[in-house]
Write a protein that binds this DNA or RNA. Sequence first.
DNA 1: AGCACGCCGACT
DNA 2: GTCGGCGTGCTC
Length: 802
Amino acid sequence: MKIASVIVDVPTSQTNHTFDYQVPKSLQGIVQAGVRVIVPFGRRKVMGFVMELKEESDFDRLKEIEEVLDLIPVLTPELLKLGKWLANEMVSLYIQTYQAMLPSILKASYKKEIEKLTDEDLPESMETIFAGRHVIDYDEFVERQGKLNELRKQIEEGNVRFQYIVKGKENRKQLLFLEAAKDVTLLEEALLDIPKRAKKQREILQFFIQNEHPIEQRILFQQLKTSSSTLQPLVDKGLIKKTYKEIYRNPYEDSQITPTQALPLSEQQNKAIEPIWQSVAGNLHEIFLLHGVTGSGKTEVYLQAIERVLDKGREAIVLVPEISLTPQMVHRFKGRFGKDVAVLHSGLSQGEKFDEWTKIQRKEVKVVVGARSAIFAPFENLGIIIIDEEHETSYKQDEQPKYHAREVAKFRGEYHQCPVVLGSATPILETYARAKKGVYSLLEMPYRMNNNAMPPVEIIDMREELHAGNRTMFSRRLIDAIKDKMDKGEQIVLFLNRRGYSTFVMCRECGETVKCPSCDIALTYHKATDELKCHYCNYHIRMVHECPTCQSLSVRYFGTGTQKVEEALKQLIPEVEIIRMDVDTTRKKGAHERLLSQFSEKKAHILLGTQMIAKGLDFENVTLVGVLAIDTMLQLPDFRSSEKTFQLLTQVSGRAGRHHLPGEVIIQTYTPEHYSIELASQYDYEQFFYKEMEMRKQFRYPPYYYLTLIHVSHPNEIKAYEVTKMITKLLRKHLTDQVTILGPTPSPIVRINNRYRYQCMIKYKNEPNQLATIRKILQYYHDEMIKNDLMIQVDLEPYQLM
DNA sequence: AGCACGCCGACT
DNA sequence: GTCGGCGTGCTC
């Protein structure tokens, strides 16, 4: 096996294939499929992944692999295969797909250096840049106006050398430990030789006579109140030696985790778990939909299913939406499986993620709980994959490769012959339809634990409030209910879909709204900073008080954001304590956890927030959930808007009365008759499913048809339009007449960051030519995409039509 | 992507 | 005759 085929880290379609390299003698046996290598590529050096080893190549004059970055492959044979499949399926590049499977810290970093080889002085302009150093950065050379032709001449003359440096960025965290370098008896002898007045030295030595285990230097110094000046003589005498120990960064070090035992299962839990256990026992690949209402005890089913998997010596992946990867959730898994659990989520630093990933790679853990990308955990003996809240949009990656974790889970489940469990109270229509058809096995858990009823939902028609002269954003009913709960010492969750203070700012004289100069979207007023912010790019300006168009002073706020709700509520109920949770208050690391624990310690009456409070939270003292305005969501130009509204309402409602205290839910809306709202208030998923399926059938949407969205953007609107038009034309020409091709249409937000956005959509049932055609189109526009700032993005089975 | 090669106009 | 601009094509 002297030849390796390598996917190189050059993300273009022209290099989207393997390149063969000779494995030099010194690296034979070390280079294997799945390791990262550094290879010469043209004049440069690049990182690459070894796909396979082979004896022969079609290519002569192979170059040699220069360096191997891993001793243990970072990609298992399964992941290599998966990446290949995924890249083809998603029309993305192999290298992008493989990078997406690994912690980002494993991406190579590239540097160019200039090294001075002679003791003689270089030309003066170069000497000033070198400033006495031997090696400088090429980028620094260019930045400081270094002359390239001069550099070239010096290279030719052999006075300087030009080097490409490729490095993995990863480093393992190491700590300095001390241990005895000799036998205890020898140490005792040495103790006699140490002068009496060297008191501290004797103390240190005595410590090691009594403790044979290595100790961290920092801790020893703390304990004995000494420092390295005292230690050094002992090290010099060879009595004590320094060692480095690799440790893992432990993000959960400080939190106390109480071990838990399996809870007795309810009847419905038993019924649901039995088929999963059978599938685990028989090593059968089966896809389950666990359709259980909020509070029905799905997590306990997951935990006990995993227990069986671990008993068989196999491993488990649990995916949770990023947003609900709360400390509460992590504690449940750590409580049950202790040190066998690795946790992966975006709140971790790059280094922490890498450490958790390393534990998986080394098989030091058996269970991984994580967000989307945890689906690529490098386990080799998977026994179950669980996707909780499978309808969550965060399971679809919105960058290349635009994969959905569910599809990856199916691939891995099939590969390992193990069950995949999709859990949700409100599965997305595609999933439920498949379960109904028998493609997935449907497991129903229609009741809450302890037979708690779902909290009753009251719908308040805000139009009537307006007629009755109530111009505030709170219905009289909601205010009364809030006061009532506050009197009883119970807590309230208020949900609003908008952050900021108000949704837009408009001039009453001329009706002009203040818009972002680079995006086609109204700016949002943020009171805390007195700024207008664009939520799509990071544009922000001071609040304007004079209309930019007509110079009148009638600029007013419209719409409602979380900040404004907080303020308005404090005016109505002065004694109320509110914790506000949105992107703005949780930006800082750990803020999320801090706010939640403050609320659970009853430091506030109300938890007010956006999307992020809708999911997974479980506070026993919450008895009222209020939804302030759901209508904005229903009006979104997206075929899933009804479904998303239904899901959100159901989830928010589930936050109330989860324990002993009965709960209630109040939904304020201007469209109380909409079926999503009405059926969500009755907790009737089934009814909603049939109703929504009818709509989907009528308008040719999933699950009846598959969708592909092709999104084109360019700084010039006409160009963006023309390209999109051309693409629709090409599609119509090459695809069968069974498909519907819509477009070109402007995106819901036509301009973001000064780029105009157009799109076209393909609706199809079965279109074998589709991927090949799309690939050809991308090929056709390839040059323009690089040179002309054109962007074409392909999204198969999109989640968002924006 | 990044780099060389090659062709063309400008200028010591 | 040489330098540097950008278009074209290749990288095992």
